[in-house]
């Protein structure tokens, strides 16, 4: 079953953006985390999308989004 927990920031509530079909059957779903904007396909290897298997180097801290710089400031 498709999880709606983000593999990157562990927030819940991901939205479904698209489903891929093959011969009428859904073969994968693309989800997007509204908190950190991570997008993923539920058919991807666990090390890319499962928070338990994913490298902490690529985690995003949902509690501290202010730390990420804004580009092109006047």
């Amino acid at each position: 079953m498709t999880t709606t927990v983000c593999g990157r920031c562990k927030s819940s509530g991901a939205v479904t953006d698209h489903q891929g079909r093959q011969d009428g059957a859904v073969v994968w779903t693309i989800l997007r985390c509204p908190t950190c904007n991570f997008s993923w396909r539920d058919s991807e290897p666990a090390r890319a999308i499962d928070p338990a298997a994913r490298s902490a180097d690529f985690a995003v801290d949902a509690g501290d989004l202010q730390r990420y710089p804004k580009i092109l400031q006047q």
Binding site: R8, I30, R32, N37, F38, S39, W40, R41, E44, P45, R47, A48, S55, D57, F58
Partner: peptide, 10 residues
């Protein structure tokens, strides 16, 4: 498709 495995999206 995801170009590199830790890209933030597509």
């Amino acid at each position: 498709y995801r170009i590199n495995e830790y890209d933030g999206g597509f």
